[in-house]
Design a protein around this nucleic acid. Structure first.
Lengths: 213, 213
DNA sequence: GCTGTTACATACAGTCTCGATTGTAAATAT
DNA sequence: ATATTTACAATCGAGACTGTATGTAACAGC
């Protein structure tokens, strides 16, 4: 019965894929480990071998798509080489657009936003998630503070950071709720432009330079 | 053992209150009807008497705070008497600010956004929720189309409606995730102003007229 | 070629949960 | 005053789920 290491890795991947499917379809709490195991063609023993429990399985699934904090810090903090505001803008546009281009990201974020409840079972995952969010807000705030002279009158860096993250989360939520509402290529830059126009003075004189004809 | 009608209503309210508490604390799926019954000082029999099942209990809980669609239509559609854009702005500002002033709204929206998973058990509630959201977007789009000459160049009514709702949902999500991030009196108008500045040309020459000194 | 370990499968115990049924005492109708 | 309904309580049965413990066959090292 014992498999070689690469075969074991294949069952691990299969378990993750089945969990993703079933979590999306039935929700995290309403999916049992036995259902996941059956779907993956194994038994619960295999799951308990590869993952400590359901919460860890959930976490490992999330880590497939959540970019590591170091990468985020690198982009938003060490952005001396480029225009900081453009870097911030690009980051959020890319994050949004990725929902339209990477189906696994779409599925996993749908699970995260609509198919799971953060309770003591997933407390650890929730805390990591919250820490990640507050990191984004904090880094955005610092970046915006460094160019505070370009903010619209009455807009503080903190307020701008909250607005920016709020809008991103909301668009993620709405997008995953109903993907057909959005055009993954056209809408992200347009939506972010409108907000940046409200945050940054003279963000863009023309609505779009000439990115798309 | 039989109670009078008003006593029965009191147990119904007690059940709803206990459900609210426990749903918030442990998530909808992870809360059993027996736990709710114990918390309310009754047995499951009382719950099954007043509510058909957990999904209906959940729905009745939501209906305590979700404003009826007619009211929404009345405010956004029959807004001839006032400035339509101001009406739209006020609606979203009020909705946001209510989170800071009505603790029950805060709790129930926290449950809705962070403590429940929309799966076949709650499919009916999900569909109502989606219909409500799409109504908001649709009404906003129509309202914005009626004043399309005031939109910033390159901003379509549909895009503006998506941006507006997206931001609202995101702020609701972030706010319920961590209420300490926001000042319920100061932040909602400021946040909405930044977005409206990006959507509407000459929304406000001064950041705030003189609402607060 | 033997051994220890790996990668699972199987079995077991225990709890939890739901839904249905039945019981019942008091309120209400007549 | 009696009958009926209400507003629950209590019980029952059946299944699902988790975690753990044990079994086991094949691989990897020596």
């Amino acid at each position: 019965m014992r498999r070689t290491k690469e075969e074991a890795e294949k069952t691990r991947v299969a378990i993750l894929a089945s969990a993703e499917r079933l979590f999306l379809e039935k929700g995290v709490a309403h999916t049992s480990l036995d259902q996941i195991a059956r779907d993956a063609g194994v038994t619960r023993g295999a799951i308990y071998w590869h993952f400590q429990n359901k919460a860890h399985l959930f976490n490992d699934m999330l880590n497939q798509v959540r970019l590591p904090p170091e990468q985020l810090i690198e982009r938003l903090c060490i952005c001396n080489q480029r225009e900081p505001l453009q870097e911030l803008y690009d980051l959020f546009v890319e994050a949004l657009a990725s929902l339209g281009h990477n189906e696994q990201r779409l599925r996993i974020f749908t699970i995260l936003l609509h198919r799971c409840e953060f309770t003591d079972e997933l407390r650890e995952a929730e805390e990591r998630h919250n820490a990640f969010i507050e990191l984004i807000i904090e880094l955005s705030e610092k970046l915006l503070a460094s160019v505070s002279d370009r903010l619209q009158p009455g807009v503080t860096p903190r307020l701008a950071a909250l607005a920016l993250h709020g809008m991103a989360v909301g668009l993620f939520t709405d997008w995953t709720r109903n993907p057909s509402l959005y055009d993954p290529d056209r809408d992200p830059p347009l939506l972010l432009d409108t907000l940046f126009n409200g945050l940054i003075r003279d963000w863009r004189s023309s609505p779009l330079p000439d990115c798309l004809a």
